[in-house]
């Protein structure tokens, strides 16, 4: 079950973005992907949702090659919250979230009442019910991001890929979204892989860390085994202190320069 990635490579022209990555992602775990800019995190997400295909190596999802899924079948397995979330036409927020049901519906069938209930609950979970009838073109960045997150939840997939899901959110909404992702990991046994720049926010929810640098995985495994000063110094080039914050019962990092 879950993702099995072995020895994948991907290049943009001559620049190698993913340089021999092997990785297993299991159901029921929250993975935080951490690394400096240009370390290949977003490319890894793109490869896992098949927006891009690796130059070599293999990716299996539930013991089946990713390339063997039809586009629609894959969209029932993996949902993505991308970094960019421009919506180009004046759809209402609810219309956008409802599009998440397309992969579950025959091509010409309208969403059923059940589908609309899934949509409603996803929006409620993201505290976005009051945005339902607003136009996407009129929403603020953070409001749009919540809608895009609700859309990914409404896709009801066993795997949820998040690429900087909190970049535009205030603290309350950022925590809320990660909390609802983490809740689904616990209650519905889904896999979450989240690219995050805010390492302390990541540490509140992550079971595992995937630390990347220059297209390679530097360290990968449960937080207690991977969160080391030496590794942080190596990939970020910054000295760090690690302590456990008793208020949230999670390790937190202070960068001291």
């Amino acid at each position: 079950m879950g993702f099995d990635i072995s020895e994948i490579f991907y290049s943009y022209g001559t620049r190698c973005a993913i340089d021999g990555v092997s990785l297993s992602l299991l159901p029921g775990r929250f993975y935080a992907v951490i690394g400096p800019n240009g370390s290949g995190k977003t490319t890894l997400m793109d490869l896992m949702c098949r927006h891009k295909s690796p130059d070599s190596g293999s990716i299996f999802l539930n013991s089946r090659a990713l390339g063997h899924y039809s586009s629609r079948a894959l969209a029932r397995q993996v949902a993505l919250v991308p970094q960019e979330y421009r919506v180009n036409f004046p759809y209402t927020a609810k219309e956008v979230v409802a599009m998440a049901r397309y992969p579950h519906l025959p091509r010409f069938s309208a969403p059923t009442a059940e589908d609309m209930e899934v949509v409603r609950r996803a929006m409620a979970e993201c505290k976005a019910e009051n945005l339902a009838d607003r136009f996407m073109t009129e929403l603020s960045g953070g409001e749009k991001q919540r809608i895009v997150f609700a859309r990914a939840l409404a896709q009801q997939t066993p795997v949820l890929l998040l690429d900087e899901p909190c970049a535009n959110l205030d603290i309350r909404h950022g925590l809320g979204l990660l909390e609802s992702a983490a809740k689904r990991v616990r209650t519905q046994n889904i896999t979450v892989a989240a690219v995050m720049h805010d390492i302390n926010l990541a540490l509140r929810y992550a079971d595992d860390l995937i630390l990347m640098d220059q297209g390679k995985i530097v360290s990968n495994g449960p937080v207690e085994n991977t969160l080391k000063r030496g590794v942080l110094k190596q990939i970020f080039g910054v000295d760090a202190r690690i302590r456990t914050d008793s208020a949230i019962n999670a390790p937190q990092v202070t960068f001291v320069g």
Partner: peptide, 23 residues
């Protein structure tokens, strides 16, 4: 008309459309 839904998804951007079943 057959691809009307795919056209809807395309207006969410190529990456999102790809993750929702439209190549």
């Amino acid at each position: 008309l057959f691809f009307a839904r795919d056209l809807n998804l395309m207006s969410l951007g190529t990456r999102t459309a790809a993750s929702m079943g439209t190549s």
